[in-house]
Write a protein that binds this DNA or RNA. Structure first.
Length: 506
RNA sequence: GGUGGGUUCGUAUAACGGCUAGUACUCAAGAUUUUCAUUCUUGCAAUAGGAGUUCGAUUCUCCUACCCACUACCA
């Protein structure tokens, strides 16, 4: 049987990095097994729908190099209708609306579900009453017989209510005295007593839409999903899902499940949230996101991370190859990934390690590629007429000092413009008459390649003289090697800058 | 509160039930360098606690503690 997995996000906002990791693991699993990766949009919550969120999800996955074989955005094109290639379309649950109702009713007919007419207020009151008594209200075998539903009402009354009002739902009827035995690819065997579970709502009449649980099981079945790989927050729903497969009689083709550990915030406890990024200064989203209020959240892409680095670091959060290799390209991940090497416990995200990954990728990239990325940065600083070969040379000198492409400017701006300001602390330390005199003599009696030899031959203090020259050339006493700078800007420019500082200080 | 899941250096993780618990990031020190960075070397630092099984437990079992998730006509 061909492996078919899906990533099924809800378009309620930007996809956060935990979601991207879930998508990635699904993708890796599919590709490793020669299967298909499907992107399905679970937009059954009409109230939380956020415009642009679906497009964001698609764009984020594309940026990571993850292209669905099937689903909305299959092969990079939006798929809306079924075809030979996409028999399972549409892939947006809102467009699959007509499919679900019959399944909900099938469950009612088979006695696995029932109509419930309790109002939100009455249920609220039940919960409050239970809480006051120090108990928890559960809508299940112990309470359903005294509540307002098709189990307690006459058939006529039930029919009348279904026809006459929109204030009803279909609830799953949890079996009594059942222990559900489940298997998880990551966590092993799990068993739960169904008596502790409640009769989940399957169908929301007010919206004419199924809830997650129903839509999810129906679609996974219809789309012939073989493995469900999703976040740990779904683990508590697994018994319900098992029971649903059973109620439909689909248990033989039921997918296998794997629940991924959560991504935790870098400091303290709890799962990674949008606020952590703002507070600690790292992105939690793959791409920049601007919400309806104009509030902007950082994105890895815009912050200068390479997609390969982002994918790599994400892959290593919760999974490891069992070897000491840390750098993996996407194809290498496909090769090495294994679901049973995924950890069970939540992984705290470490922004420092994320930067390290980017640095590693940056230093492995060819100068030509980096030059192309750096050109817009240069343009942003008003440098437009530059020779590409020169930019590549600059990059080869700065590459191993940088973490992001944008760092090239901070490190090497002196190779494009003369310093206008000088670090006072360094001026005080190195711009002293005797050093300046020596530096001037050395500079004027040598060229780029003989400067160091001249200073040495005349027994000048190497460190002080070099730093005085560096100060004149770059504005500070730290940074690139003098010889490298002079090779780039030329001796004449170096002398000019030196004289400029002399005049400025006199 | 209830249900489920989890727990190895600060972080991510490795270790058929068997050497001195390994590696990476961070941090510190040293070497190299004209400075900074790089690079190299070294160092700091962990099996949550308690029982049990066993010749032997990070690994298996139980208890406790702590953390997390779920507990909606949200996904």
């Amino acid at each position: 049987m061909k492996t078919r997995v899906r990533f099924a996000p809800s378009p309620t906002g930007p996809l956060h990095m935990g979601g991207v990791r879930t998508a990635l693991y699904n993708y890796l699993f599919a590709k490793q097994n020669g299967g298909d990766f499907i992107l399905r949009i679970e937009d059954t919550d009409s109230h939380r729908f956020v415009p642009g969120a679906e497009q964001y999800i698609i764009e984020a996955l594309r940026w990571c190099g993850i292209f669905p074989d099937e689903g909305v955005d299959a092969d990079g094109h939006i798929v809306e209708t079924p075809s030979e290639r996409h028999p399972h379309a549409p892939y947006r649950q809102s467009q699959r609306k007509p499919i679900y109702r019959q399944y909900a009713e099938q469950l009612v007919a088979s006695g696995n579900a029932y109509y419930a007419f309790d109002s939100a207020e009455s249920l609220e009151a039940e919960r409050a009453r239970a809480e006051a008594a120090g108990q928890t209200f559960i809508y299940n075998y112990e309470s359903r017989d005294r509540l307002c539903n098709s189990l307690t009402l006459s058939a006529e009354e039930t029919q009348r209510r279904i026809a006459g009002t929109t204030d009803w739902t279909i609830r799953f009827k949890m079996p009594r005295g059942r222990v559900v035995e489940m298997d998880d690819l990551i966590r092993g065997h799990i068993s739960v007593n169904a008596d502790t579970l409640d009769d989940k709502v399957l169908w929301k009449r007010a919206d004419e839409l199924p809830t997650y649980h129903l839509a999810n099981i129906v679609d996974d079945h219809l789309m012939e999903i073989t493995e469900v790989i999703r976040g740990e927050e779904w683990l508590p729903s697994l018994p319900l899902h098992y029971l649903l497969y059973e109620a439909f009689g689909w248990q033989d083709s039921q997918p296998r499940f794997a629940h991924l550990p959560l991504l935790l915030k870098p400091v303290g406890n709890g799962k990674l949230s949008k606020r952590d990024g703002d507070k600690l200064g790292f992105p939690v989203f793959p791409l920049r996101w601007v919400n309806a209020d104009g509030e902007t959240s950082h994105g890895y892409r815009e912050d200068g991370y390479f997609p390969e680095a982002f994918v790599n670091l994400l892959a290593m959060l919760g999974w490891n190859p069992g070897t000491e290799q840390e750098i993996f390209s996407l194809p290498e991940l496909v090769e090495a990934f294994s679901i049973d090497k995924v950890g069970k416990s939540g992984a705290k995200f470490n922004p420092e390690k994320a930067k390290w990954y980017n640095k590693e990728y940056l230093r492995r990239k060819p100068a030509a590629e980096l030059a192309e990325l750096f050109l817009p940065v240069l343009a942003g600083h008003g440098i437009t007429e530059v020779d590409t070969a020169y930019v590549e040379k600059v990059i080869s000198l700065t590459q191993e000092r940088a973490t992001f492409v944008a760092d090239f400017w901070d490190i090497a701006k002196c190779l494009f413009v003369a310093p206008g300001e000088f670090v006072q602390k360094d001026v005080d330390k190195f711009w002293k008459p005797e050093i300046v005199a020596a530096a001037r003599e050395a500079l004027e009696n040598s060229d780029t390649d003989t400067l160091e030899g001249y200073i040495r031959d005349h027994e000048m203090p190497m460190g002080k003289v070099m730093n005085a020259i560096r100060l004149a050339l770059t504005g500070a006493s730290s940074g690139l090697a003098i010889a490298d700078i002079m090779h780039c800007i030329g001796r004449d420019e170096a002398v000019r800058r030196f004289r400029y500082l002399c005049e400025k200080q006199s």
